[in-house]
Simulated assay, not measured.
Amino acid sequence: MSIKRNIAVLAMLFSVSVSATDVEEQQLTVLKDPNCGCCEKWLQALPDSFSVSVQHPNNLTQRKRDSGISAEVQSCHTAISSNGYVFEGHVPPTLVSHYLAGKKSENGIGLTVPGMPVGSVGMEMGTRFQPYTVYEIKKDGSITPYKQIASLEQQQALSNGGL
């Protein structure tokens, strides 16, 4: 009887582990200009747990506005999760994952890295690095600092999954 019980427990653990893996996969739709190389580098940095589709809309700026991203905080590409959160520009993929895991404010709609800071994910230029801030975008359009990236070493630690 204990063998049957052990088999049942193992079967239950296996099914829980399969469902946990299914839950971890995130779907992102990335809106970008077809000629942007830094966007491609950012896409390559996303973890394998993301299922990504890419679109090249003619009305990219309008789509950003429609998603709640004001002109002041726009960058070159926009990722929209299957549950409607937005990630504008060179947001470190680790922070995208944390945000989608629930590490956000109650009225947040996503994260942005305005502009294209040198050294951010997709904008690597050797050892050159420009400190930057990742901001959380709120439902009312306001932004608040989410994470300051102060050094190349901190950027590299984020790229390796650390915070």
Score class of each variant (00 low, 15 high):
L10H: 12
L10P: 07
L13D: 06
F14T: 08
S17L: 11
V18W: 05
S19I: 09
A20W: 06
A20L: 11
T21A: 13
E24G: 07
E25H: 15
E25I: 14
Q27S: 15
C36K: 10
C36D: 05
G37M: 11
W42D: 07
Q44V: 00
Q44H: 12
A45Y: 00
A45S: 09
L46C: 10
V52K: 11
V52P: 12
V54W: 02
Q55Y: 03
P57R: 09
N58W: 00
N58S: 12
L60I: 04
L60R: 06
T61G: 10
R63L: 13
R63W: 01
D66T: 03
S67W: 05
S70E: 06
A71G: 00
A71M: 09
S75T: 02
C76Y: 09
T78F: 09
S82A: 15
N83F: 11
Y85A: 14
Y85M: 15
G89F: 12
P92H: 07
S97L: 13
H98E: 15
L100T: 04
A101I: 05
A101C: 10
K103W: 11
K104D: 09
E106G: 08
N107K: 10
N107C: 00
G108Q: 02
V113S: 04
P114M: 01
G115E: 05
G115Q: 06
V118H: 08
V118Y: 03
V121K: 03
T127F: 01
R128F: 05
Q130T: 13
